[in-house]
Design a protein around this nucleic acid. Structure first.
Lengths: 332, 332
DNA sequence: GTTAGCACTTGAAAAAGAATAGTGCTAGGA
DNA sequence: TCCTAGCACTATTCTTTTTCAAGTGCTAAC
């Protein structure tokens, strides 16, 4: 167990390092601790012994280790009030009556990304939990038309298709067959249901069924887990820990990874913090995330930033967003 | 006027520099020219005098100046056949019968970005040339619904809205009023038409008209010139001329600029090339762009890369895409 | 337990030196 | 008149050296 003073010192070092991105020297904090730098130094040495602090080289100041951040997060950080400034910005989003939840989410996370220079990720419900709600086809010109697919979670996707030399009549027939027969099917089962249940029926009632069937089949096949939204990726460029092109390239590719979805899974019902090696995205970042759940939608919000992240602020902001999102269902 | 040999030398320097991103020395090309390096050097000096070449420092090899690239593009570059490899990749996109034009475009430009490591931009018809084709509202759950707006150019946009405590009946009425009265209106006139023509009518027939009206008003207000599609922005990180975080940040912000649309305007009906200061985006890049026009759609495709861009290849690729896109209307 | 003092370590920045790549110029030859 | 071999000259880059400042660890005294 740490002494009161050690707690204090660790906390100061974490906060200073978050602020300045520079190893923290004993001199910088000895005033606040009300003792000499020598005393602070010997405490620092103990904290390093315990694995809570690190040096970048023999005679540098200290920076928090991953374990140090973890300790800070678990024991030293306390819930802060959201600052007036932050709140003000977010409120303009939440107070817009006409914005639906998903819009609110995206917009508020855009704000957070801009405010903090971290990257935000919104992860909607995964598509295998989405059920087909309705499809519709809007003819644009000649054989060019748009297929719109809507799920019960409010996820919309549209796709342009060409269906040359096919009468509108036949297409309408197919659409209403699909709407009658497979609405309510989980999205990723639609393809197979289409094949085994709809194809035989279409081929009986619809001319040119081959072409039409293929078209719809492709539409659904491409309706993948696109329900992931990455906001503010470019802010990574502003973080001093990603000051080389190679590091940026590396992290970009990890964020654009097709399997990112699987890397942001949480067992926790509340805000959880994954520092460095604790997260599956990258050893040099921290991910702070929370699931959210409303009447119409559920998913996860995650903020990705350097380990030297403003934990207090991000947690407070995420809490605020989560609350407001989940409240919105009752309110209006 | 340049001599035959000077043309040859300039061409070689441009090509070598494009390939190696390194100042080109007299030694490197004297074999190909069949004369001594000294001769090449004196020719280089003349070419520099004419402003076609530059040195990075007193005793470096030469690199092409903007004027040099311009001369190359105007006089020395000749149309090349697309390589088998490039063609093969693109064909898989164009031969997909079910892909509509806009899909084809995006996918083929994604390919080009990956192949060349340049950034591609697709600019669809600007929204003031888009006319409203249809709107529809799909209720998802309780007061949560999705408004889908479709233009006659096939541009689709959807927006989630909350309309609490409003009966479906009233909403349907409003939608059909809008569809009856302002379909065919250019998108950017919709807002005002909504205000002056629809609002009075809604307020007569529809209860809660205030809230409903505001919702739709917002939907259209947000339907801005989003018809721009930037592909492969991150490839900039691979270009040696953008090897510092600051340069990347700068170019990123220029590409994400709200006014990018206006900076990619072309008077030319064919492929045009804007080198360095000739383009409005950034002095350090070249933009190669072409308008395209099909029965259902028109717009511009642009490729953005360093001035040291593989002009031949990009022009060939763009031509190939333009042709295939424009052909598609007749074919199937 | 705390602190002042001092030797010591390290990295970062500046300066100096060596190596290299390439030019410009000159003078002699086809 | 054009071409080319040869050589002096110049920047750049890569190393090495020097200097400087920031901080630590340790010791001895309070």
């Amino acid at each position: 167990m740490l002494t009161e003073r050690q707690n204090e010192i660790l906390k100061l070092i974490v906060l200073e390092y978050i602020k300045l991105a520079h190893p923290v020297s004993s001199n910088l904090i000895c005033d606040t601790i009300h003792c000499s730098s020598a005393t602070v130094r010997s405490e620092m040495a103990s904290l390093e012994e315990m694995g809570l602090l690190e040096k970048t080289h023999t005679s540098s100041g200290r920076i928090p280790s991953e374990k140090g951040y973890r300790y800070y997060v678990d024991h030293l950080m306390k819930a802060k009030e959201i600052t007036g400034e932050d709140m003000l910005k977010l409120q303009t989003v939440f107070q817009n009556q006409n914005l639906a939840l998903s819009e609110c989410l995206t917009q508020s996370l855009e704000l957070i990304s801009d405010m903090t220079s971290y990257t935000s990720i919104v992860l909607g419900k995964k598509s295998h939990e989405n059920k087909l709600k309705e499809i519709s086809v809007v003819p644009i010109k000649d054989s060019h038309m748009i297929v719109i697919v809507i799920t019960d979670q409010g996820h919309v996707e549209h796709k342009d298709v060409e269906l040359p030399n096919i009468s509108q009549e036949e297409i309408k027939k197919t659409v209403s067959l699909i709407n009658d027969l497979i609405v309510g099917t989980p999205i990723d089962e639609v393809s197979s249901k289409l094949e085994f249940e709809i194809k035989p029926i279409i081929s009986r009632y619809v001319k040119e069924h081959e072409l039409i069937y293929n078209t719809f089949y492709n539409v659904f096949r491409d309706f993948t887990n696109k329900n992931i939204n990455i906001v503010g990726k470019d802010h990574i460029l502003e973080q001093p820990e990603f000051n080389s092109i190679d590091k940026v390239k590396d992290l970009f590719s990890k964020i654009d990874d097709k399997h990112l979805v699987d890397k942001i899974e949480s067992d926790n019902q509340n805000i959880s913090i994954y520092i460095g090696k604790e997260n599956k995205i990258d050893n040099d970042v921290t991910v702070i995330q929370t699931p959210y759940k409303t009447e119409s939608e559920e998913g996860t919000i995650a903020i990705v930033g350097p380990k030297r992240m403003d934990y207090d602020r991000v947690v407070t902001l995420l809490e605020y967003i989560k609350e407001n999102i989940e409240e919105k269902k009752e309110g209006e």
